[in-house]
Design a binder for these strands. Structure first.
Lengths: 147, 147
DNA sequence: TACGCTTCATTGATATGTCAACTACTTCAA
DNA sequence: TTGAAGTAGTTGACATATCAATGAAGCGTA
């Protein structure tokens, strides 16, 4: 069998690509003078996209544990990009909304993120990306399947 | 453009699959009563594979920061799976080697790891895996390219 | 041989991942 | 209407990721 050694294991390539993209994107953000992490960006963007979302839903959307989301939201609040108000109809939740400054970060980062993706996918055509997406979906499902 | 929303971004699928597999594999290890983390396993296996390796090389092999490797090695030492001796010819390094108990963990985990991979790749044929590997490699290179 | 430069490794600070315990609020049914 | 079960969120403990600073050992060259 060919995958005796770690470097031949496909999940190695997966980690490798995932981490490489993460570092790359983070470097670009920092270079643009934007003081947030990739994960903070993902959370910010998710909240921006969906009105009246719960932290749990944010977590599900970004594949993060709820505990992590709680902390990231606290950081975003501290940085003045996000604010929370008590939710009008459910006392357990809070209403999440971007501040002016949060909105402005989203507008700044969006084109950077697009450029990052374009560069990371250089030389890979749309069909290949679609195939990649399908395989990754299958892997995710295989792993998440209850047993 | 279709990837306005986060969930349409391919790197999302990448994170998703990577995290799903990680959680899946970790659960299998724990279920087998093996008290190490996935990352500790990767480091242990790497050292097992390569005689006389430096921590830097270990880090490169598992896509980890050297600082992380240092800490993981400390944990593996504390668990009695790994031991370090002063390196005979280079005073900066130490010689890394598995203990009896470390060897035994490797023998126990190896078949589990193979089973995990088999299950995670269920329904994905070898050709597709090869294609996946190639695309991931390209992405990694695109991101690591100096600029 | 002494100096600077590089390499290997460690440590500190902060952010995140994961699991588990816990609080507070809601809902629903008896 | 009250008590049990469920839901949203927080926090603690530990492991890892990343960056920066540091220490310690080797190496090259004047």
């Amino acid at each position: 069998m060919a995958d005796r050694r770690l470097k031949d294991v496909i999940f190695y390539s997966l980690e490798s690509a995932s981490k490489a993209y993460r570092r790359f994107a983070q470097a670009r953000l920092s270079a643009a003078g934007i003081d947030i992490t990739i994960d903070q960006w993902l959370v910010l963007k998710t909240i921006h996209e969906s009105a009246d979302i719960t932290l749990q839903q944010v977590g599900a959307a970004v594949f993060k544990d709820f505990a992590s989301v709680t902390r990231i939201v606290q950081l975003l609040e501290r940085k003045g990009l996000l604010c929370r108000k008590p939710h009008p109809s459910d006392g357990r939740r809070s209403e999440l909304m971007l501040t002016k400054s949060g909105e402005s970060v989203v507008r700044t980062v969006e084109p950077i993120a697009q450029g990052n993706r374009r560069q990371a996918l250089d030389g890979i055509d749309a069909e290949e990306v679609a195939r990649l997406r399908a395989v990754l979906k299958r892997i995710t499902e295989n792993c998440d399947a209850p047993r």
